[in-house]
Amino acid sequence: MVTLTPLEAELLAVAGSVPDPELPVLTLQELGVLRAVHVRDTDSVEVELTPTYTGCPAVEAMSTDIERALRDHGVREVTVRTVLIPAWSTDDISAEGRRKLREFGIAPPRAQRTAGPVGITLGPTRTAGQDPEPVRCPNCGSADTELLSRFSSTACKALRRCLDCREPFDHFKEL
């Protein structure tokens, strides 16, 4: 980890406080997509941003929002660069971010056991009693939920239903 200068730390905090355009309960810092802030000149800054998904359309809105936040903070020139390496993973979402997701009605992603490609098995869609770490209903907390669709309102979410309270809900799927 590169040590940040006090100014870089300050600017990283400003950029990190920008809300995610699609999940406004989360900040970009909590989502874990801000990689670095480099101060190039007295008032020129480069920000490194990584997309959650390759085709995530929110990246452009994020860039614009970061530029605006840093300009408002007195930075004259802001460049936002998209970086792919290392790839973002749902493990990059902070504990606070996970708590906020749950509160917002989205089941947070479970921590992944191993790095690398997501292992997927063609198992039953219902999780209670099958999975050591079931996806819990964000509304009632029940572990008895079932998968309705692997793809939901955005690429990063799956659609599930609680079999106790019967509410459908989004699950931020593991990546």
Partner: peptide
């Protein structure tokens, strides 16, 4: 390598969907 490391995880879901 950079793109592939990112996209391979997404494609795992595509493949899974087609398998199902």
């Amino acid at each position: 390598a950079g793109l592939a490391a990112k996209a391979v995880k997404e494609v795992a879901y595509h493949r899974d969907h087609a398998e199902q």
